[in-house]
Nucleic acid binder design. Sequence first.
DNA 1: CATTCTGATTTGAACGTGCAAATTTGCACG
DNA 2: CGTGCAAATTTGCACGTTCAAATCAGAATG
Lengths: 354, 354
Amino acid sequence: MAEQRSGREDPHPAEARGEGPTLNDVARVARVSRQTVSNVLNAPDKVRTETTRRVQQAIQQLGYRPHRLARNLKTRSSRMIGYEIARSRPGVINPVLDRFVHALVEAARDDGYHVLLFTPDEAGQIAAYDELVGTRTVDGFVLSEVNYADPRAIALQARGVPFVTFGRPDVPVAHTWIDVDGGAGVEAAVHHLAAQGHQRIAFIGWPEGSATGDRRAEGFGRALAELGLDHDAALDVRVEDGADDGAHALIHLLHGAEPPTAVVCVSDTIAVGVLRAATTRGLAVGSELAVAGFDDTPVAPLLTPQLTSVRQPLEAVAQRIVNHLTDILAGGAGKPDGELLAPQLIVRASTHPY
Amino acid sequence: MAEQRSGREDPHPAEARGEGPTLNDVARVARVSRQTVSNVLNAPDKVRTETTRRVQQAIQQLGYRPHRLARNLKTRSSRMIGYEIARSRPGVINPVLDRFVHALVEAARDDGYHVLLFTPDEAGQIAAYDELVGTRTVDGFVLSEVNYADPRAIALQARGVPFVTFGRPDVPVAHTWIDVDGGAGVEAAVHHLAAQGHQRIAFIGWPEGSATGDRRAEGFGRALAELGLDHDAALDVRVEDGADDGAHALIHLLHGAEPPTAVVCVSDTIAVGVLRAATTRGLAVGSELAVAGFDDTPVAPLLTPQLTSVRQPLEAVAQRIVNHLTDILAGGAGKPDGELLAPQLIVRASTHPY
DNA sequence: CATTCTGATTTGAACGTGCAAATTTGCACG
DNA sequence: CGTGCAAATTTGCACGTTCAAATCAGAATG
């Protein structure tokens, strides 16, 4: 059928190059122009049904897939979202990485984006961000573990780089954020303990200065006020995030004049230490001492007794973050706003009196 | 200085476009051609020192960074490595994600690559792989948790897609892999226990059929043989990977005619259950019953007592995997080979007799 | 039947870079 | 001072796609 061939042939058909087929290859097979194929994929309403059918078939036949790089070069977007994974500290259970990253990747995929991981650059907090945005490797970022006046948020803001944070800034600033209401989580834990009959409830938090920690601590104070319990300063302590620190804190609490019968911890890591110290002292956790953690890390259900913990809706957080970010990237400016999601208290044996 | 300007001007200088500067912008400032700038970056030896200096300065001045997409389009490579994160099962501590992913990202960066995460596609085990490679979004893959005759490895192999696995295939096949000698890890644990005086050492493994699990089990048999201890089938049990399963297994073992004085577990998750069951039964772990885990997950040092565990050199694994993969991607064919790294036994209180 | 209009399709150009070939420059030599 | 040669630099083109403008086909209109 040589006469069917058009005069000008693509001198480099896909097979000859040992590469995937291109728009031109599909176009030739479907006997349409390159642009029509492009339209079938990107603006189907501009193409006649019959033509669409023919093109689709050619695409099928050749197993064509658009070349991401070529498309992105033209559209000036990478359709990649950058996410920095911080170095995990040994001895501290990373509450976020596993579940959150997973959720992030899935949410991004649903919106046609991919997640690119990177680690902090020793050249400075934002060097890695500059690099990625400078080379246009990513279109925007998701920041987690943001603190007050987070330098990364400030820098990205100044550069006009799109980003959404997991965690809210302290002052109302002009960027979009999603956060979990940690205070409400602690509040729920305290209410739960009070409902079990506990009157002397302690809180082991992180040292002041971390946005996340401070807000959880506030929830503690709020809950006591709501319950009409007085806020005994001796029952409100602050330690670094470590199991040993938690253990020491509990021992200290137990040595007080009026020791607590229940302890709410700002993290599961600390709760692990509290559990350990309690067990070592022969205190029956659950009946004699109730303990609650925070983050519902994978270990919570593995501890003895199983640990009551506040679970963050990380999947929902990731979903909302990606939605907001892709909106911004799509140019749907809108004014930046925040969204506060409610955590959920997972009650387990460590706070059961029986 | 109008007379210094060349006749033909770039009609779209960077500032006018509101985008980053391009090679052309740098070239104009440095008064050289676009290609010379490219050479300064990619083949410095082809450029005169003086010219290099001028170009460097222009690059500095404009804050130029090469446009990744454009470069990659031309070089037909994305300089991205794909890594699939499997859905983590609740109640099982993911031994790999945190440390390994981190190490992977850092190793990749050192070789000029980025890591792109993705999750399994419900359309099939390799659909997501096909998609990424079809759109040329990634250049190759790192596979972890590979099993015998892993379908992903087979499919990628068939398609000629570059990849390196963490985990070795059962038959000598034609792909490169890195693995940790799990058998040797269990062996080390058994030897350590024997050195503490234990004669009846049990092993709690996974059901047969998983490459990783079977090899760890083999190490157990090997160690017993080396030590001249007989391989009592009653002390070699298999359960699913869960804390409860570990607990049941221990109880079962303790009910035997001659119960073990030491237990090596194929995972920390199982060890957690064993610890729990032992404690519940009033057995002093460390002195009366020694327990060792595997993977040295973040919880191991947080347990009571702290858990002896076999630690995989994940950082080294990631490093070697990336090195091999980038070699392959650079065309440095070489014949595929494997590399077996030794794990390290981290001794803690759970196997200390005092 | 010529004209206008609308929708469908094609053509030309560009995104920013790197490879290959072409050109220019600098320098040693007879 | 021309000649030859290697080194330095430039020019042309292509990577695969999308956007904008141009062309074409077909129906509706006067």
